[in-house]
Design a protein around this nucleic acid. Structure first.
Lengths: 407, 407
DNA sequence: CTGACTTTGTGCCGACGCTAAACAAAATAG
DNA sequence: CTATTTTGTTTAGCGTCGGCACAAAGTCAG
């Protein structure tokens, strides 16, 4: 069932959908573009030609192909290696990372940075944007937007970070506004000198977007992602290729599902929340291994799961956390009924440790065996939050390439 | 952010959106149709004329209006009282109800029936369809589709009822198929003699759809509905005007959220589920009033709340259930972040009994005060499941009026 | 190597759905 | 009665896409 449209949207040509198909790798040839788009070959040809003229793609028209299939080989559609990029950045507890990301989720250039500056949004984002501006200057490529991923719930439409505790920012900081200001200050402008379009997203949310378009979530119609980084649990839902962030950006706050009624108290006022029961610290404590200061909690947990899984205490701790994670996932399955679930951070390592156990718990505790048998996979992208931040910036381009170029 | 369209859909004209606007009462005049549609007056005029020619609406072009506003008064757009209808039906534990429903959610004719026939889908639906066919013959109006609401989870795309226990049908009955067969058997066909399009939905799901389009959910972007009938709790989510049923129809199975960790055991294997903690029977038991056989449990609970709320035991029971309902709603708010919540059945009576308490619990137990302050309202439609079943059948017409008429 | 076959790219024309602009109509305000 | 506001109508034109015919580039069979 299609939505009751209240307003006819602009950009109704096939240009945007076509670019999205190439972007997500679903249209590597012009023939596939034709079929996926559901238009005639003539239209697909015109669209491909226009995308090439706009500088997004290159149509490989060389006759050299020995494809093996019958019939005339189709022209290849490649993303233009000199095409436009977006500025993407990620802020986390250890520092930040700025990058230029092209279409297809391709990281063109990247620059890490540490958090030596005062823990204040304006200073941190000033450094982030400075690093990005330097990358942009060095590359000489056109920039069409900017996206930032933060480890915090993001309230829409204001673009404020409600709990950026891992980066020690004040709750409610107007992060998107600060980001945009720093970009303007650095002299980065969009096509035609317009202010650069700036976007902000929660790191797990945008990671889900990246996984859906370029990673383990490709082709999923309703993708649920649950992940944990250092502390706390984040969730995300991608519906029909779009991030579902709820009416004010606060959906999928899954950290406070109850997974252990008699468990440890949580700052939310309840007990046994996913947030405090299934994160790296909880695992290390359950395994009787006090966390050391050397590496991050996540790395310690990962190494323990990988290297000492034969240790009965480690295994018992893993089983306990797997059972609780499964309980939380089952609750989400009952409410959301996704057709695929991706796990990140510690959760993916728990999945790797004993996939059958986790799948069994989810199936057992969800109402219908059918929806309980939803595939559970690990996240597949290396820098999914970074690429996801770029996806935020790419979105208007995919929706309407002409307008995004300043047409 | 708009979806990455993989395929250009048919029916891209403004005809469908325009009909939807009149259907939902958002375009009572041609001028409003113009602005809501976002097209020029010329286009809106052509669209309105075509909808009138198709028999859906009537354009009231009489100059008699003294509207009070400046400028030329706009032509009124009324639904054609002789326009097409759909066949809608609802099956519940006490019997069934068949009806003809016009655009705008207007019940044109209705016929109740009791469950004297054997509790078998084919027999019951045979009687339902027979009643509907009789209404159709008597009305002489064109029928464009058929929708059925059942008190059961419905698996998509098969259209099977997974737990139709209240009507004593076998789990997994192919209800949509049986419904369609009975319609064909009764000789009801669509325009041009094509088989009548038949739809099946869970009763709470379709009720949510009806409330969104014609009731207390109008204008909500992300509407959550939670309701209980006789036993058990159902949920529904309407996103962007569309029912969100998950990847296989099983989303919003909210009955097994834990709201009382030490509570009574549930058939799902857990304890203290919403399903068994906040339904009419649980309320009557908590109030120390053993259920009598005279009227339904829901009516007994409603009367108790209305007439004896001063009784300390009743009030204490209500508070207990309100607190547990609020806990469940808060969990849903954290995951879904809707911008409005509607309550039905016992839940609406609990809301009526003490709105402040319920709102406070939801706000307190949801993570962000902001999303916790989501408006809580009671369902407003008299026969929302019946009208919602009709909405299922109207949907293809709203999406593409021309094709639905057999163009 | 040659010809049949399959599949894809291209050019041309028309249909459709909309916008833009100018004008006419129907009300209110003074 | 006239000016103003708002809406309906007519006409011309544009942009996007489908349909069709034809050309192009490969495989397959002999």
């Amino acid at each position: 069932m299609t939505q009751i449209r209240t307003r006819l949207e602009r950009g109704r040509s096939a240009l945007g959908p076509a670019l999205a198909l190439v972007h997500t790798g679903r249209a590597p040839t012009r023939a596939l573009l034709t079929s996926e788009l559901g238009v005639t070959r003539a239209t697909a040809g015109a669209v491909a030609a226009e995308l090439e003229a706009l500088g997004f793609i290159r149509v490989d028209t060389r006759p050299g192909g020995a494809s093996g299939a019958q019939g005339r080989p189709s022209h290849g559609l490649d993303l233009d290696p000199a095409g436009p990029v977006v500025l993407a950045a990620q802020v986390h507890s250890d520092g930040f990372r700025a990058a230029l990301v092209g279409l297809g989720g391709r990281i063109v250039a990247t620059a890490p940075g540490c958090m030596t500056v005062p823990a204040d949004p304006a200073h941190v984002l000033g450094a982030v944007v400075e690093a990005g501006a330097e990358l942009l200057r060095a590359s000489g490529r056109t920039c069409l937007g900017a996206g930032l991923a933060v480890p915090s719930a993001v309230a829409e439409p204001e673009g404020t970070a409600l709990n950026p505790l891992h980066v020690a920012w004040p709750a409610g900081s107007p992060v998107r506004q600060v980001f945009a200001e720093q970009i303007a200050r650095a002299g980065i402008t969009g096509p035609g000198g317009a202010p650069m379009a700036s976007f902000l997203g929660n790191d797990v949310n945008v990671a889900a977007l990246a996984e859906h378009r370029h990673g383990a979530g490709r082709g999923a119609g309703q993708l649920l992602v649950v992940a944990t980084g250092h502390r706390g649990v984040g969730g995300a839902l991608v519906l029909g290729g779009r991030l579902h962030t709820g009416s004010s950006g606060l959906a999928l706050e899954v950290g406070h599902l109850t997974v252990n009624p008699a468990g440890r108290p949580c700052h939310c006022g309840s007990r046994g929340c996913l947030d405090v029961e299934v994160d790296p610290l909880a695992f290390l404590e359950a395994a009787g291994r006090p966390p050391g200061p050397a590496v991050s909690l996540l790395e310690q947990a990962r190494d323990l799961l990988r290297d000492e899984y034969e240790d009965p205490a480690v295994r018992a701790a893993a089983h306990t956390l797997i059972d609780r994670l499964g309980l939380g996932l089952a609750g989400l399955v009952n409410v959301l009924n996704p057709d695929r679930i991706l796990l990140g951070g510690l959760h993916r390592h728990l999945l790797d440790a004993d996939p059958e156990r986790l799948r069994a718990v989810v199936a057992d505790r969800s109402l219908w065996g059918r929806s309980g048998s939803v595939p559970l996979l690990a996240c597949a992208l290396d820098h999914n939050s970074l690429v996801g931040a770029a996806e935020l910036a790419w979105q208007p381009v995919l929706d309407d390439p002409l307008t995004a170029l300043g047409g």
